[in-house]
Design a protein around this nucleic acid. Structure first.
Length: 891
RNA sequence: GCCCCGGUGGCGAAACCGGUAGACGCAACGGACUUAAAAUCCGUCGGCCGCAAGGCCAUGCCGGUUCGAGUCCGGCCCGGGGCACCA
């Protein structure tokens, strides 16, 4: 360690926080910078109506134990944008908190016997230290953890308001049931249709649950997407498809004699269809296994009942349902065609879901691919009732052709024959309406949001069940319903249901013995409004206050693309409900959205003959290449090796054991290197495949920057810059510096491509290294270039820039310095280089004055030697001049 | 299965509105410095042909539009995300 000779500081008499060393020592640099920010409370945000606010929000983490690279990437992006906005004069709020309820805490409890509360709070403490070490410009005064009663009491309070307004209601829903553990399983806990701990075949079970009526807002959630100009198009497309508005018709098929005998005379089998024009092609009906008609038929037919039971096994996941073999059984019951009165047999099919639409569909094999497959497999008639406009096929026969599904002209459809599809839909719907058997209707794919969870580590639903009074809300003045924090789940059901001290209570209405609700809320509830709470985190008397009106909407939201649908849709919905209950004034919570790509890593696993699949960290894998491909071996703690399967790439997660802990990176290279690496490696929206290499390069760059400043300042203070008196070389470096600044300003501010911003500063630093002019003006230009580089990099690597700024002799801390302005004069050039093509192929270059006329450019291009060689004697057929870019000679 | 996104040198990437493909960095290789190593600095670095000048090929695959396509259109293959109880 060596001390250098310090240059005098021109106008800064303040003592140095440390002496500049020749070597870059990240630990000392980061300690000093963080000390400055903390002691000046640089990031504590206060409401100031006079200043333009900038609410910059990153999705809060689940406190899983340690930060992972996805967090570092996410929070560095947010920090760069926050610090950039701050330098541009905005009043910035960048808060942080913890999505602290959820399943992993219960899993950890089962594995280690630690109470979820303790585990969660320990994790929060550790991860908070990690976040602080990374130097994020966060206002920690507003920190919230969703497992704190101060936070979740407002979930409960607002749930009761939603219940009063009818947004929250109760109905039955389907869950995964593990018959051995007697417990409800999350989809994640169902593997190949079996419970992850017991291996037992999972059953579907219907239980009462609370729902939020998000479908009431479906139209608005869809329509308002158009306002969200600051959202990525792909996210809006995904949400629009998820909401899935479709225009169609509801059709009621009256029950035939056989079905009426079982179900009563008044009922009809209702379906929704977007293809009412194919109504005369219906040759069967399919209902879900849980449909009343199926249940009634099953009761008198043991073979059918067996099939219904089979349908009830397996998972509730749509991906499973969609990929499983399509099966069906006839019920022997019939419904009547609404126009012809012809009997149509009703089938039970495993691909029809009770939760979708009416739980029943009409089968038109000739014009629907899935119905076609089902009919072919089960020997059901196929009746063509649509002819394409060009008459390109006669009857629909195997194999299925795309054309069968297209719209056209109706045929063999009674009085509705000969109509174009759209007209046929209108005519048929109108006729159905007259008969009272149907009407046009809009159907959404979106389903209501079930929020009940039969789990411990979540927000208790504030209801009391009384035998006399029914379901009674917990009075507001008794909120919050506190979650006991000392329970340890064992995997067999909800511990709350086994804890009488929790559920035993008195009815608030009659005072008699009553039972408290033991279900807790989906954790998506917590994340649907946490961003509002940051604005007023210390308010113990109300969910929101005036400060919410100041900060909302969020100006920039940053988070993983995996949240493109559920979390973002639920938050939009929740905000609209709060608006309708007059708690907030905005209808959309997030003005601008940046969806960060996932950080991916290899996944290695081993499936033992019995028990759970084990995952191994990529760091513990040896790869052996051979002719037949690669084999993978996991090194185990006892020194043995186990051959494992490479499952491919996947998002870094605890469950796949493929996370990379940023801690070692920070300890070895410092926070700035970790931040720079994440920003430089890929553009933020793109997924990033992890690799250890490359980190060195980021560290090396910071060290080169440090060295360049050190060498410069050791030459003493620089003279004042005389812009008009520069020579060509000085002008060139100055132009490079301002070009860099223009690019970085645009890349951070508009394009949000931090990788190219870093590359631009690297290029400038390469030019600085080549610049050997040590004259007074040479050093003045150098001083400006290094100062601009420091400012430009400061949102990304704030610690080292804090130190370098002082070294460059500037008064005041960098954190309080505004973003610099580009000097247009520095960018001016006399000549420019144009590319010359012949028939679109690059053949040469010409250099012309910037103000050259098009004619002189044409002449110069044609005179260029290699162009003449390629065009030969032939006169050019066409000359294309693209201003400031190129000339293309076409022969 | 359905919806969304991506695929460019050995690797991460750049090319912003259809106009020089590979900026910037990593790795590798050659050299300088060093007793040595590290660090640092200089140079080479898509493929093929050529002594060179230069030419040809090349942005997952096949086809199209255009004076000109990594970029636009159609079809396919592969990878990733989501699919409502992981968060």
């Amino acid at each position: 360690m060596r001390w250098c000779i310090l240059p005098a500081c021109p106008d800064n008499g303040k003592p140095r926080e440390f002496q500049m060393e020749e070597r870059y020592e990240p630990a000392a640099v980061e300690r000093a910078a963080q000390h400055h920010w903390n002691s000046h409370r640089s990031f504590a945000a206060t409401e100031d109506p006079a200043r333009g606010k900038f609410y910059c929000l990153s999705m809060f983490p689940y406190p899983s134990g340690r930060l992972h690279m996805g967090h570092v990437r996410n929070y560095t992006i947010g920090d760069v944008l926050s610090r950039f906005a701050r330098m541009q004069g905005r009043n910035v709020l960048q808060p942080m908190g913890w999505d602290a309820f959820g399943l992993p805490a219960e899993n950890a409890a089962m594995a280690n016997g630690v109470a979820p509360a303790q585990w969660t709070r320990d994790n929060i403490a550790y991860m908070k230290k990690q976040l602080q070490a990374l130097g994020f410009a966060l206002d920690w005064d507003r920190e919230i953890a969703t497992c704190d009663p101060a936070s979740y009491r407002w979930n409960q309070w607002f749930f009761l308001r939603m219940r009063e307004s009818g947004v929250a209601y109760k109905k039955t829903g389907v869950v995964n049931w593990d018959p051995v553990d007697q417990t409800v399983l999350a989809n994640e806990q169902v593997i190949d249709g079996r419970g992850w701990r017991t291996g037992a075949l999972v059953e579907k079970r219907e239980i009462p649950m609370y729902y939020l009526n998000i479908t009431r807002y479906a139209d608005e959630l869809l329509g308002d997407l158009a306002q969200l100009e600051g959202w990525p198009e792909r996210v809006k497309t995904m949400q629009a498809n998820w909401i899935g508005r479709s225009e169609g018709a509801e059709v009621a098929f009256p029950l035939a004699e056989d079905a009426r005998a079982l179900l009563g005379a008044d009922t009809a089998l209702k379906v929704f269809t977007t293809r009412a024009d194919t109504l005369f092609g219906v040759t069967f009906m399919a209902v879900a296994a849980e449909h009343p008609l199926a249940l009634a038929a099953g009761a008198r037919d043991p073979a059918l009942q067996e099939f219904i039971d089979e349908c009830r096994r397996g998972s509730t996941m749509e991906a499973d349902v969609a990929t499983m073999e399509k099966k069906g059984r006839p019920t022997g019951l019939h419904v009547l065609h609404p126009f012809t009165g012809e009997p149509i047999e009703v089938w039970v099919a495993n691909y029809v879901l009770m939760g979708y639409g009416e739980g029943a569909v009409m089968g038109v094999p000739a014009h629907d691919e899935r119905d076609f497959a089902f009919a072919s497999q089960n020997g059901i008639a196929i009746r063509t009732v649509i002819r394409p406009q060009d008459g390109s096929y006669g009857a629909a026969v195997a194999p299925w052709l795309e054309a069968y599904g297209e719209r056209g002209i109706t045929v063999d459809s009674g009085e509705f024959s000969g109509l174009e599809s759209a007209a046929a839909v209108d005519a048929i719907a109108a006729a159905l309406d007259l008969k009272g058997l149907g009407r046009k209707r809009i159907q959404f794919r979106l389903r209501d949001w079930g929020i009940s969870r039969q789990r411990y580590w979540g927000c208790p639903i504030p209801l009391i069940h009384c035998e006399r009074c029914g379901e009674v809300p917990v009075p507001d003045d008794q909120l919050p319903v506190l979650l006991p924090e000392n329970l340890v789940p064992d995997g067999s059901g909800n511990p709350l249901a086994k804890t009488p001290s929790f559920w035993q209570c008195k009815c608030p209405t009659c005072g008699g013995d009553a039972r408290r609700e033991t279900d807790t809320m989906d954790t998506f509830v917590d994340s649907s409004w946490y961003f509002l709470r940051y604005a007023c985190a210390d308010n113990t008397r109300a969910m929101v206050d005036d400060r919410v009106a100041y900060w909302l909407p969020v100006d920039q939201y940053i988070g993983g693309i995996e949240h493109a649908i559920l979390h973002l849709l639920y938050s939009r919905f929740w905000t609209k409900v709060m608006r309708d209950l007059r708690l907030v004034s905005v209808g959309e919570p997030f003005s601008n959205l940046l969806t960060q790509g996932m950080v991916l890593n290899d996944i290695y696993s081993h499936q033992p003959a019995e028990g759970r699949r084990a995952y191994f960290n990529p760091l513990d894998i040896d790869v052996e290449e051979s002719d037949g491909g690669a084999r993978y071996f996991a090194r185990r703690e006892d020194g043995s090796r186990l051959e494992v399967t490479h499952e491919g790439l996947g998002t870094m997660s605890k469950s796949k054991n493929n996370g990379v802990d940023p801690q070692s990176l920070v300890e070895k290279f410092g926070a700035d290197t970790a931040r720079l690496f994440m920003m430089f490696t890929a553009p933020p929206e793109q997924s990033l495949e992890w690799s250890d290499e490359g980190v060195q390069g980021s560290f090396r760059f910071i060290r080169r920057l440090w060295k360049a400043v050190h060498e410069h300042v050791s030459g003493g203070p620089a003279a004042a810059l005389d812009k008009a008196g520069l020579d060509a070389g000085q002008k060139e470096l100055r132009r490079a510096a301002h070009q860099m600044l223009a690019k970085v300003t645009d890349d951070i501010g508009r394009r949000r491509t931090f990788n190219t911003a870093v590359a631009a500063v690297m290029e400038l630093l390469n030019a600085v290294a080549r610049f050997e002019d040590r004259s007074a003006q040479g050093r003045a230009v150098m001083q400006e270039a290094l100062s601009l580089a420091t400012l430009a990099l400061s949102p990304m690597i704030p610690h080292v820039c804090h130190a370098l700024w002082q070294e460059l002799g500037h008064a005041g801390a960098l954190i309080d310095h505004p973003w610099p302005a580009v000097d247009a004069g520095a960018l001016q050039q006399d000549s420019m280089t144009l590319v010359v093509q012949v028939n679109g192929k690059l053949r040469g270059q010409i250099t012309v004055p910037v103000d050259a006329s098009e004619d002189s450019i044409r002449a110069a291009a044609l005179a260029e030697e290699s162009v003449r060689r390629f065009i030969g004697e032939a006169p050019p057929r066409k000359l294309i001049v693209v201003p400031r870019k190129l000339v293309n000679v076409v022969v």
